Structure formats: structure tokens, C-alpha cells
Simulated scan of single mutants.
Amino acid sequence: MHKIHMNNKKNPKQKPPGNRYDRSEWAGAFGDLGTLIPFIVGYISIIKLDPLGVLFTFGILLIGSGLYYKTPIPVQPMKAIGGAAIAGGAAITSGMIFGAGIFTGLFWLILGLTGKLNSISKIASKPVLRGIMLGLGLIFIIEGTKMMQTDFLIAVIGLALTFFLLTNKRIPAMFVLIIFGIAAGLIRNPELIKELANVHFDFRLPQYSLGQITYSDFFKGILILGIPQIPLTLGNAVIAITQENNRLFPEHPVTENKIAITQGIMNLFSPIFGGIPVCHGAGGMAGHVRFGARTGGSLIILGGILLIVGLCFSSSFLLLLSIFPASVLGVVLFFAGLELAVSARDVGSDKGDYYVLLITAGFSIWNIGIGFVAGLIMQEMLKRKIFKV
């Protein structure tokens, strides 16, 4: 992994760098597609959410995050909520999704405003925090390899192209991967060319969606979807993203409370126009950075594209996505996982630190919240010399 902003000493009179929109930012803008697209497709095709609402709110939130933070602090679908909703199928209503979003928004906004999260994060040592990153990285690598199995030949070519161009500043790897993915999709399924003729301009404005929430939906959304998401968000989208942002971009530091507040605001806004619960997942930053992003410009670029597609082509959205092979999305996810996992290399040389790291990572593959707690327990056991390794 190449080094990013390694000089932590700043001239107090020097203004921190702002957003850029060069080709590296354009390439990095698409670095989180491996997680973004599968969840959005699931929400639209299985839960039957209006593509306009999902894309419009996602676009607005990405632009807002890029303008506010000025680093690639991402906006991602909340994975526990998204996974449970998509797995639940017809039993999950749009009102439950929106209710879960409102609950999530209020929860993190209140927690951030009370200022408690900074204290919570100080309890965890570096091995615990790096263990979360390693565990999340391994999750991405495993899921990426599963997606690559859908067309192994295409995946191998995509992997080779990406490795070859990964540090090439003139030809961003993501651009080549996108072009290759589209070409491979059309070659594998020539009928898609005829189907793409059905893509048409269809301008619409988003509709107010809170009227779809019943009291039953609201409380079911909290119990079934919202509450199980909390530990995952704490570990990945509050503590891990804060550590990762401050490690990579010390000139734009953030705090856990600040992240929680913007996460709360996002989730209170999203349901108004039919959007889904979202978070600042650390995996998203790894994906954006791995493919070239260094500022919030990458988020603004992606947000602008989603906004235009949502407002003008929402009825053709799933058709547009059909040309991009899942195996190539798996390659994107795989490299995002590598970027996350490699951040654990600076944990130190102490054997006890490695135990804490690996225990945290191992349990995080199962559940990041449980991994965080397991790492803390192991950390305290070793610190108090209850047992030795």
C-alpha cells in the first residue's frame, strides 16, 4: 500500500487541502461499488423500494459527506439491516426500512451529541482497533472471492489487470476495470445490447415517503432491523472509520462523536424521500482510497452520478447495472478487503498484541460488534495478567 500524507506536522497558518476532481478522484469514486451495488439491487428488486428514492438520497448524502469531511469518508448501506431486510423478502416492508432508519438516526445523533463515544473509543487498544480492520478486510476478501466464482475467467483477468495497474498514476486501475467489465458483460451476453435500447430518459422528483410508515412497521423495524445493527455500526462505522481517517488523513482529523452525529443526520434525512439506512463504513474508505481517492471529491463525483441517474434514469437503473458482471464487482470488493486488512501490519511485535489482534479479527468475521467485545476482554485479561500467552 502506498503512503498517504505521512507528514503529520502542519503549519498552523496553512489551510488543509480541499477537494480535488482529477482522474485519480474519478477512479477512486467507484472503489466502493462492490458493496454498494449488491445492496441497492437487493433493496430495489426484492423489497421493491423505488429506485428514485434510493439513488436520490444516496447521491445527496455522498455529496454532503464529501463537502463536509473533505476526505473519502464514505456513505454505505448498513449491512446488518440490509442483509436482514433482503433475506426477509416479502416479510419486510418499506415502512420497516424507513422506521429502522429513523431509529438509527436518532440513536447515533443522541449518542454523538452527548459526547460519550470518544470515551468509549479510548478503552480499545491498537490491537483491538486493527483487529476490527483485519476482520472486516477478511470479510470483504471472502465475499469478493465468492462473487468472483460466478465467472472465474473474467475475475482472473480483472485481478491481473488491477494488480498490474494498481500503482500506475497515468492509467487508473478502476477505469480499466470498468471498461473491461462492461466489455466482458456484453461479450458474455450479446442480448444485453438490444436490451440497452430500452434505457430511456424519465425525469422524476422524489416523493415524500414517511407516510408509508405505520406504528407496527416502525416498531418492527426497530426490533428486527435497527437494534441488531448497533454493535456493527459502533465497531466499523464509528470507531474503525475514525481511526482509519485519522491515520490516512491527519490534516483532516475527525472524532467518534462527529462521525456519529453526521451518521444520525443522514439516517433522519434518508427515509424522508425513500432512502435506505446508511453509515460511514470503514470498508468504503478502503475501497475509495485503494483505487485513487484522496479527498472528498471522489464522493461528490459518485454522488453526482447517482443523483443524475436517479432523477433522470431511475426506471432503467437495474437494466443499466445488468451489463456489469458480478465477478468484476468481486474484484473491486477483494481489493478493498486487501486495503483494510493490510492496515493491521503496524500492530507491533508483542505476542500478546498479536493474540488480541487475531481474536478480535476472528470474531469480527462472525460479527464485528462481538469481535470488538472479544478483543476488549482479551486485552484486559492480558493487561491484568489473569493469563499469559
Rank of each mutant, 00 (worst) to 15 (best):
T57Y: 05
I193V: 12
G28T: 13
A237E: 02
G34H: 09
E195D: 13
G131T: 03
P253W: 05
I239D: 01
V199T: 04
I46H: 11
I92N: 08
L161N: 11
G264V: 09
A91S: 14
G105W: 02
I227Q: 06
G158H: 01
S364R: 04
E143P: 00
I308W: 03
G296M: 12
N245H: 03
S270Q: 06
S316G: 04
V238R: 08
F152W: 15
V41D: 09
I230W: 07
A124Y: 14
L210Q: 02
T104P: 04
P253T: 12
L161Y: 10
F249M: 06
K388M: 04
W366S: 09
M148F: 08
G82Y: 08
I154Q: 06
A173L: 05
G185Y: 04
K220M: 12
I40F: 15
S216G: 12
L196S: 09
L232V: 04
I97W: 07
I63D: 10
R20K: 15
P127Y: 00
G88Q: 02
S209P: 01
A184D: 04
G297M: 03
K383V: 01
C312T: 07
E244S: 14
L117R: 00
A184Y: 10
E251G: 01
I46M: 13
M96P: 02
A87N: 13
L299V: 11
F164G: 00
R170A: 07
I92W: 03
G369T: 08
F164L: 12
G292E: 06
G185S: 04
T242Q: 06
P17W: 00
E339N: 06
G287H: 15
G66V: 05
I46A: 14
L129C: 04
K388R: 11
N367D: 15
L248R: 09
Q76F: 08
I63W: 09
I142M: 10
L166E: 10
S121W: 05
S121I: 11
F291H: 01
L382Y: 07
G42T: 11
A341T: 10
